[in-house]
């Protein structure tokens, strides 16, 4: 009994099911992101407190300042990026355009979130150590 015989011994149902599952999963992988709700706005938090909220569909440039530093936020084509940050490493600028996710300016204690910003009541700590 060889592997080849076993493969040949599969029923038509087996083969159809296998191909169907492959097709469904590939379609799912490529299209699931499109189906999900798109982020609608950009929120800016300073020291964990919400300070600004801008819609993602209007292009604009905003100056954000905190007692620890400042940066310029640019919104364009439903994407956001940070330019002109006051911090030494410019890590937030290097992150470039994002359409979903977070840019964090640690020295300035500023957080820029595109979409999926959680309400404070949903915010939970994963774990605390030390």
């Amino acid at each position: 009994m060889s592997l080849k015989e076993t493969v040949n011994g599969t029923t038509l149902g087996d083969r159809i099911l296998f191909i169907l599952l492959l097709i469904v999963s590939f379609i799912g992988i490529f299209f699931m992101k499109e189906v999900l709700p798109q982020p609608r706005d950009v929120t800016i938090e300073v020291e964990g407190k919400l300070t600004h909220r801008y819609p993602l569909d209007t292009d604009r440039r905003v100056e954000v300042g905190s007692p620890f530093g400042h940066l310029t936020l640019e919104i364009k084509d439903r994407k956001a990026r940070v330019t002109g940050a006051s911090c030494p490493n410019k890590l937030c600028e290097l992150q470039g355009w994002i359409s979903r996710g977070v840019i964090i300016c640690l020295p300035g204690r500023i957080t820029v979130t595109v979409g999926g910003s959680e309400e404070p009541k949903d915010r939970k700590v994963d774990a605390i150590t030390g």
Partner: peptide, 9 residues
């Protein structure tokens, strides 16, 4: 939902 098709594959 994002991980479902990956796991099915």
């Amino acid at each position: 939902l994002i991980i479902t098709p990956v796991l099915i594959l």
